[in-house]
Computed example of a mutant assay.
Amino acid sequence: MRPEFSRAWRAAAVAAGLIASVTVPSSALADSIRDRQWHVSALRLTEAHKISRGEGIIVAVVDSGVDAAHPDLAGSVLPGTDLGSAGDGRSDTAGHGTAMASAIAARGHGPGGGDGVIGVAPGARILPIRDQGSSGGSRGTGDGIRWAADHGAKIINISAGGADLSAVRSAVEYAIGKGIIVVAAAGNDGGPVEAPAMYPGVVAVAGTGRDGSLWPKSGRGREVVAAAPAAEIAGAEPGGRYSITAGTSDAAAITSGVLALVWAKFPSLDAANVINRLIKTADDKGEPGRDPSFGYGLVNPVRALTADVASAATHPLLPSAASPAPSAPASAREPGGPASSSDAARGGGNEQSPALMAAAIAAGALMVLAGGALAIFMRKRRKVHTGR
Rank of each mutant, 00 (worst) to 15 (best):
M1A: 13
R2N: 12
E4N: 12
S6Y: 08
S27C: 04
A30E: 13
K50S: 09
S52R: 02
V62Q: 00
S64K: 03
V66H: 01
P71C: 01
P71F: 03
L73K: 07
G87W: 01
G87S: 03
H96A: 06
G97H: 02
A101D: 02
A103P: 12
P111E: 02
A121S: 09
Q132I: 15
S138L: 05
G144V: 12
R146E: 08
I158L: 15
A163Y: 07
D164H: 14
Y174V: 09
G177E: 00
V183N: 03
V183C: 03
V203G: 05
A204T: 06
G209Y: 09
G219K: 05
V224Y: 14
A231I: 10
G235A: 15
A253M: 11
S256D: 05
S256H: 07
A260M: 04
S268H: 15
R277W: 04
I279C: 07
K280Q: 13
A282Y: 04
D283C: 01
K285Q: 13
G286M: 07
R290D: 03
V299S: 00
P301E: 00
T306Y: 09
D308A: 12
A313S: 11
H315F: 06
S323T: 06
S323E: 02
P326S: 07
A328L: 11
P335V: 09
A339D: 15
S341Y: 11
D343P: 03
A345K: 11
G347N: 13
N350C: 03
L356C: 00
M367F: 10
M367S: 14
M378I: 14
M378T: 15
R379M: 12
K383F: 11
G387D: 10
